[in-house]
Amino acid sequence: MDALEVAELSFRYGRREALHRVSFRVQPGEFCALLGPNGAGKSTLFALLTRLFVARQGRIAVMGQDLQAAPRAALARMGVVFQQMTLDLDLSVARNLAYFGALHGLSRREAASRAGEVLERLDMAERAGEKARDLNGGHRRRLEIARALMHRPRLLLLDEPTVGLDARARAAITAHVHALAREDGIAVLWATHLVDEVAPADTVLILHQGRMLQRGRAQDIAPEHGLAAHFMALTEDAAA
């Protein structure tokens, strides 16, 4: 079963078409990088995938659950890390996780146990008592990823999660999420415009001006270290 299935998805803001018949699938354990320049439609796609907007054309299904027909079942199977930080800075790391766990129906005991697990998974176990405000940018992001794993989703959506981070923090977060896909079988959709975050074995989706230009393994669509040039050429050609 596909972890994520997007079929013929279109969306308009008034007359402006933001997405045009976008289709793709993400399998369990697959790390799928959604590449696109600014304004490509990535944020709109994420808003539709998380049901902040409702698609009027096309279909989205998460682990076989149609987002339109069974939104709660679909949302319960996905974890989301938004581009903007969504932590409560006045709460501790543990309380941020407990709050999210409760929103997903976890009891206090379950939430505490899961919080221990996900913090361990993201190498943050020793920070459970710290206030979110006291964490650096990289650790805040890691906490958001840990939080998105609290309800054990099968699909993880991350919208430009490394924006504003230094190179070291970016590399650490990219490595953590790749490990989640590889070792835990979680399907990952990672939106970015930074091609150096993509590993050769990752699937790449190139979105530009609301259209899906290409889909394939990074190592198949461009030679090693050639993805950036390929991406630039593809999006420039499409713009011309």
């Binding site: 930080m85 969504t86 932590l87």
Partner: peptide, 14 residues
């Protein structure tokens, strides 16, 4: 505007 409302609205509840 800051995004934390999104977290609430993507919880699997009505």
């Amino acid at each position: 505007e800051m995004g934390s409302m999104r977290l609430l609205l993507t919880a699997p509840l009505p």
